[in-house]
Design a protein around this nucleic acid. Structure first.
Lengths: 160, 160
DNA sequence: GTCGCTGCAAAGTCTTTGCAGAGAG
DNA sequence: CTCTCTGCAAAGACTTTGCAGCGAC
């Protein structure tokens, strides 16, 4: 069966993640600090891709007593990225956005007329992507795919 | 038959590109300058994805008399991107890389460590994309796909 | 001639780094 | 205790912008 409560699922998943992080730190003689935990937790609790700046903001809101510096956010994100726990993506004009590698990925189908975005995941494409990465000697961490077109609604409008 | 000399093919293709560029400039009451031509030509003659800086270097090597400024390179790349003649890709820590949009369709595999970009085309994925668009009732016009990961060389540098 | 374009340098952004005190192991 | 981390501020890296003269049309 695949029935779980969100609460338990997320908690267990987060504990797992935290343990992974601690293991990596230990292995590299690095220290487990409150700042590092807060950064991981905030990344975990966010559903969006975060920029270092937005992550910093979130942390300042949620943990105002802990005056976490932006430099620490950058340093921790680099650390997490090096150890493959987060992935960074660059969209559009500025900066990088980070997300936990453990999260589900989905792709986007974007209507160029009305801007509607439909999310989808296609197993065949996912499989091929891994295969291609393999062929090219890459260790794939993430992908991003957008299909642009016209949605049904807008196609009907065009027929008028 | 599909046999042509590289020379003629590239020349004709480049003339086409140049005319497109001129048309766009004219339409927007912008001027056709030597700098703009040199930038387009250098982009055309490069097989790699270029950063503004590497493009600037190439131009300085090839056209030392024309002391093209880096600012002009940035300005022209923005112009070309706005008018859809070049595409930009972002990666890793460093900035954006540009390529001419007129080149053959391909997707990108990007190393998030060193920024290496490998191009590929996978027929299965192309087919699936059309199928998905169909299933979702979209009339597909374009797509863009990037696979992010770590190339063989950089995998060795990672923390465990 | 007009008005956009260019190079230069200065100003912005975003990110990294040096340092001295704080804190994990 | 030792040695890494942290916040701060300064330094870097990359990109954009203001300006005065230049050049396409």
């Amino acid at each position: 069966m695949n029935v779980t409560t969100d609460f338990n699922e997320r908690t267990v998943e987060y504990e797992q993640l935290l343990n992974d992080f601690k293991a990596i730190l230990k292995k590299n003689a690095l220290k487990f600090t409150i700042q590092r935990e807060v950064i991981l937790e905030t990344l975990y609790n966010s559903d969006e891709h975060l920029t270092p700046e937005s992550l910093h903001h979130l942390i300042q809101e949620k943990f105002p007593d802990l005056k976490t510096g932006i430099a620490t956010v950058y340093r921790t994100l680099s650390l997490l990225e090096e150890s493959n726990m987060v992935t960074s993506l660059s969209f559009g004009t500025q900066g990088k956005k980070y997300e936990l590698g453990a999260k589900n990925h989905h792709d986007h189908m974007i209507c160029t007329e009305c801007g509607t975005i439909t999310e989808f995941v296609d197993e065949q494409i996912e499989v091929r992507q891994h295969a291609i990465a393999n062929e090219l000697g890459f260790k794939m961490s993430d992908h991003s795919m957008q299909i642009y077109g016209t949605c049904k609604t807008c196609q009907n409008k065009q027929l008028q």
